[in-house]
């Protein structure tokens, strides 16, 4: 695929913003519309844009890991977050929460559902990119 200068330049500036948006959507998912599915899809779309602009090879370099590794990590994380509740005697996948104090920064609730959502996020990125990059690569 011939590279377009406009696309390449635009991507250079768009990419960080889109990835930031992706993380933002993912993180606010528990409180406002967003979450692992949406955030993951935005990230996947961003990387496929990068692949259009710079070629699949460079996208794979940025990703460092093969997309299927992301799928595996995500599934493990989701599964592992469900196992946490077994240690307290609750059924599989029961949410467990821990309140973290960051002093002046405020309080933050960390819970296994967030880890689960991170797993979803990774699987969505991995699976979608596995498909798209494989196709773009020819």
């Amino acid at each position: 695929m011939r590279q377009s200068l406009i696309l390449a330049t635009a991507t250079r500036y768009l990419m960080p913003m889109l990835l930031l948006l992706s993380v933002f959507l993912f993180l606010r998912g528990h409180y406002l519309p967003g979450g692992g599915f949406i955030g993951g899809l935005v990230a996947a779309a961003t990387f496929s844009l990068h692949a259009f602009a710079y070629g699949v090879k460079r996208t794979r370099q940025i990703l460092r890991l093969h997309p299927r590794t992301y799928v595996g990590l995500g599934l493990l994380l989701a599964l592992g977050s469900g196992l946490v509740s077994l240690t307290t005697g609750d059924p599989f996948l029961t949410g467990q929460w821990e309140a973290l104090q960051f002093g002046a920064l405020g309080d933050f609730d960390l819970g296994t559902p967030l880890l689960f959502d991170l797993g979803v996020y990774l699987v969505v990125i991995g699976a979608t990119l596995a498909i798209l990059l494989e196709l773009e690569g020819g």
Partner: peptide, 15 residues
Amino acid sequence: RGRDIVNVILVDFRA
């Protein structure tokens, strides 16, 4: 401890 009910269903109630 969530406010977006749809997302809470996805990651907690029906995880």
